[in-house]
Design a binder for these strands. Sequence first.
DNA 1: GCATCAAACAAAGA
DNA 2: CTCTTTGTTTGATG
Lengths: 277, 277
Amino acid sequence: MPELPEIYRLSEQMNNELAGKTIKGVQVLQEKCLNMPAESFIKILSNKRIENATSRGKWIVIKLEPDYRLFLSLGMGGNVILHENGQALPDKYQLRIDFHDGRILTVGFWWFGYAHAVSEKDLGSHKMTAKLGLTPIREAGFSLEHFLGLLKGRKGSVKNFLLNQGYIAGIGNVYVQDILFRARMHPGRKLQTLTDEDKSLLYSSIMETLGEAVKLGGLAYEKDLYDRPGGFKDFLVGYREGQPCPECGATVEKIKTGGTASYICPNCQGTEDPVDY
Amino acid sequence: MPELPEIYRLSEQMNNELAGKTIKGVQVLQEKCLNMPAESFIKILSNKRIENATSRGKWIVIKLEPDYRLFLSLGMGGNVILHENGQALPDKYQLRIDFHDGRILTVGFWWFGYAHAVSEKDLGSHKMTAKLGLTPIREAGFSLEHFLGLLKGRKGSVKNFLLNQGYIAGIGNVYVQDILFRARMHPGRKLQTLTDEDKSLLYSSIMETLGEAVKLGGLAYEKDLYDRPGGFKDFLVGYREGQPCPECGATVEKIKTGGTASYICPNCQGTEDPVDY
DNA sequence: GCATCAAACAAAGA
DNA sequence: CTCTTTGTTTGATG
């Protein structure tokens, strides 16, 4: 489950290593992760020069000259690894891209991922990326003002809001746990009950949680372009079921919130709302 | 997504089979589809004699003697099946009603459905059924005059009007497609732009589309009380994206109209209004 | 009061 | 650990 920090790191590394390089060949081992037949996909990528690599939310975006973008999503988990000339490849991967300098990029995911090639003129109709919100940390436009605007008149629970990629791109069920804890909010807290102070606090929680994770290079159990782990491993409450809350010592609980699991301190986050999931 | 024709057929079959029968026992497998605790629900239904079964819009209405009604809604899809003595039951269902003659009724839905028991004196406060409009075909009161009265002074799009159960009960996102095509109207067409002729045409389209579907026993992919499919499968434009319009041969398009999808012939229905969804 | 919009709801399938 | 799709109802907002 790579989220914003992991994808950010990968895209930065890819930009450093691959900008200016030209694709020599492409091998597709799982056609259904594409948005077109493998043949067309290979034809589009082959001999294209990479202009740059960046990210939007949980998507890696690779600009191919002159007018295509390659969107990569690792779905619920996976990796993108750059292999030096002669270095062994992983046992399993879905996509392999060879460069003229002999280096090889492999893209693998263990459940569902996508590799979509989209022309500039079709960007608007690429459903999965056309309507993404801004990416915190990465895009300066994600300001407190912007955030308050997003919340205006919005209903539903704060957790569903944070996970909705159309509002904010890049938060998944991992980082959302600590964001909510930092803001001392129950995941089921209704947006309409948030005070201005709550909203500012939530904004800072997002920026701090993601900012720190980006600085640390993402999660310790996710790998970067060089197959090295990140440095973020000390969750506040996320995935710490049964362990003490770092703030008050109460036991962290795992609860079901709609379709997803949530980890909360029932003391610090539990008093807010009469919402029973 | 059973709509008027499917629900009509089911209620007729239930009336034929179950009127006069007495409920022996009730099993609730999903309490949240009820409007009360399972215990109360079971107590109300048990040993009640069924007076008759009928339908209103998308609701099956079962009258229990002396003063209760059981309302069933199948939500986005489901089935009501009557099992003869000893016949195997489905793998999954939410509600099971046993009769003294050994037959068993199972009610199952794959998303959200309701089984609400309401006393005669509380009918007015049962929000989901209290303010339903008339049911075309089933209720003779749904005349051209009545229909014109409904439209008087009303604003908004013709599709939203047709789907509003408070005006007309029983039309959903399936049948509305062909009703609009038959009337040669774009779903976003504003009611205020309709001429008298348009309104009559729309009325006939409703009566013809639903009338034919009722005659054919509803949709071919929905099952009746005996687990048999209906005979309606030849949509004019509904769910025929990419196929030729039966009238002019133009390619049927799938478009977003507010929250729902619409299937239209851009040639036959597209010229009417400058409404862009 | 009415039209519009967004959200919730469950589960499967990618 | 993901995201989309599906149809209906409801509750907030203008």
